[in-house]
Computed example of a mutant assay.
Amino acid sequence: MTEYGETSSHPTTHEVWLPRSATSPGHVTQRLRLIVLFLLVAANTAFAAPCQFESQGEGRVAGIVDARSVRLDDGREIRLSGIVPTATTKQALTSLLAGRDVMLRSADDTPDRYGRQSALVFIGESDTSVQAMLLARGDAVVSAEIVDKDCAAALMASEAAARRQKMGSWADPSAIKNAESPDDILAEIGRFAVIEGKVLSVRQAGATTYLNFGRNWTRGFAVTISKRTLAAFENAGMALKSLENRRIRVRGWVEGTTGPRIDVRLLGQVELLGANEPTGVRP
């Protein structure tokens, strides 16, 4: 999966919004699927504590800057936190937010070095973030950058619902890469990818821990975790050595020259998978 910006030339793969006048069986079926999907998202998040980020102001969306940023009528540029765009994100974002009044929520409102304010974006008085809406339709992927447990869980539940329904980008069988196919992962160098596989060994070299998915440590896919990140896993009760012979899902930016690598810096980048869990479905 690739992050697409304003100049992306990749084609849109599906309609973002169905016209109200659509009455064909295909349109009706698609509309029913969307209704069921959002009910599933609501059910998955109903028992979780609400996201407690504070309000960081409000405004009206004056324009869509790119697939992950919008500009408000007061001049502020807002970067949607918690997601990585796909090929359809910008079109979906335009349909959702153009000219709409929005509320911003985040841990703080400090702009990044480009002057953008990162936040979860809510339309009007809605309790569901725009990010969750995009994820539930398969128009975005969770980035794992939001570390607040409740907020992160809500986003992951939305993405999981889309995977179950094979919505949007998840309709592509290659959306989730197989850790046993390092050449396929190498093709994603410089891109954000979601990869599943069985950890064959856990090794430490200096200040770095390696989760190896292949027996050839040089060419096989591996996850790297620095010593500074290790504490987050330990505090969550996840001993890295215990991941040997376990199936996991990992997400992040693919690096490497001979063998593909993902450098894990956040706990949310790694998910344990059940022994009998089908590919692409989260328990």
Score class of each variant (00 low, 15 high):
T2D: 15
E6V: 10
E6K: 15
E6T: 15
S8K: 00
S8N: 05
S9E: 07
P11C: 08
H14I: 11
E15V: 11
L18K: 05
P19D: 11
T23Q: 14
G26A: 15
V28I: 14
L34C: 13
I35Q: 10
A42F: 08
A42Q: 11
A43S: 08
T45F: 04
A48I: 14
C51K: 10
F53N: 01
S55D: 14
Q56Y: 06
G59F: 04
R60S: 10
R60K: 10
A62N: 08
I64E: 07
I64P: 14
I64K: 09
D66S: 09
S69F: 02
S69A: 00
D73R: 11
D73Y: 01
R76P: 11
E77Y: 06
L80A: 08
I83S: 09
V84I: 14
T86Y: 05
A92G: 09
A92L: 05
A92W: 00
S95M: 13
L97Q: 01
R100V: 07
V102K: 04
M103W: 08
M103L: 13
R105N: 09
D109Q: 02
R113P: 12
Q117P: 13
A119F: 03
F122G: 05
G124F: 01
S126H: 00
T128V: 10
S129P: 00
V130H: 09
L134M: 02
L135G: 05
G138D: 03
G138M: 04
A140V: 03
V142S: 04
A144C: 05
E145I: 10
V147G: 04
K149F: 05
D150F: 11
A154Y: 01
A154F: 03
L155I: 04
S158W: 03
A161K: 01
A162T: 01
R163D: 04
R164K: 12
R164T: 02
Q165T: 02
A175L: 04
I176E: 05
I176S: 07
N178R: 12
S181A: 11
I195Y: 04
I195V: 09
G197D: 00
L200P: 03
S201W: 02
V202P: 03
Q204L: 01
A205M: 12
T208P: 05
T209Q: 09
T209V: 07
T209P: 03
F213K: 06
G214E: 14
G214Y: 00
N216H: 08
W217E: 12
W217F: 06
W217S: 11
T218D: 15
G220T: 06
G220R: 00
F221Y: 02
A222K: 11
V223T: 09
I225L: 02
R228C: 13
A231L: 06
A232Y: 12
F233G: 03
G237T: 00
L240H: 14
S242Q: 07
E244V: 09
E244R: 14
R246G: 09
R246I: 08
R246D: 01
I248L: 06
R249S: 06
R251S: 12
G252N: 03
W253D: 04
W253Y: 12
V254A: 07
V254C: 04
V254Y: 05
G256P: 14
T257Q: 13
T257A: 13
T258I: 15
T258V: 15
G259N: 08
I262M: 03
V264Y: 02
V264T: 03
R265T: 15
R265H: 15
V270F: 02
L273M: 02
L273S: 00
G274C: 11
E277G: 06
E277M: 08
T279V: 11
